[in-house]
């Protein structure tokens, strides 16, 4: 990848022989890109993809909005957000951490506690924060958190039950309006 500024285009007005230095082009002025992420899953393993992509987008200067709906709502409910779980039940792809043995589905339902502890340990070993800390980082990076009104109504929850940095409980239409022109990701 060669910067166009380094091409040896002769300039009649300035015969300066020194080429322009090679400097990364951070393109600050071109970051009108916007990302909308709908988080609809409350399993521990399905909470992370949206957080990781959203965090990466924020680190690239991209305006990022997360909409928490259905089971994904648990990620922003104060009493639940620290207790998301990972279950191997119903997950035919689940294999044991050693070798490539699949976990028999007959025993899978009993394994939720163990599987959750193991996944949390693996995530922590990578230096990746737990869900509440991760959302702290996302809002510190300028990310926007929105709660789904229908989910709040169904679960009989109000703003008092949610993280303080959730900017509002809004309808699907309102979310679509405020993310006009955004790229949208449904998880």
């Amino acid at each position: 990848m060669t910067s166009p500024t380094t091409s040896p285009t002769p300039s009649p007005s300035s015969p300066d022989p020194a080429p322009a230095p090679i400097v990364p082009r951070f393109d600050d002025d071109e970051t009108d890109r916007k990302l909308a992420i709908i988080c609809s899953k409350g399993n521990l393993d399905m909470a992370y993809p949206g957080l990781i992509i959203g965090n990466a987008a924020l680190g690239e200067g991209i305006e990022t909005h997360l909409f928490f709906t259905f089971w994904g709502f648990d990620m922003i409910v104060k009493s639940r957000m620290g207790d998301l779980r990972f279950s191997p039940a119903g997950n035919a792809a689940m294999h044991l951490p050693v070798r490539d043995m699949h976990l028999p589905q007959t025993v899978a339902p009993a394994m939720t506690g163990l599987a959750t502890r193991m996944l949390k340990k693996q995530i922590a070993e990578l230096g990746v924060p737990e869900v509440p800390d991760f959302l702290d980082q996302i809002t510190a990076s300028g990310g926007h958190l929105w709660a789904c009104k229908m989910s709040a109504d169904m679960m009989r929850l109000t703003e008092a039950d949610l993280r303080e940095d959730v900017e509002g409980i809004i309808t699907a239409t309102e979310f679509i309006e405020l993310t006009g022109g955004a790229q949208l990701l449904f998880i």
């Binding site: 600050d28 690239e60 200067g61």
Partner: peptide, 17 residues
Amino acid sequence: IPVKEQFTLFPKKPGKK
């Protein structure tokens, strides 16, 4: 150094900058 401060010091793309 808090992430928020990193964004203030190195706007928009702190990791790379």
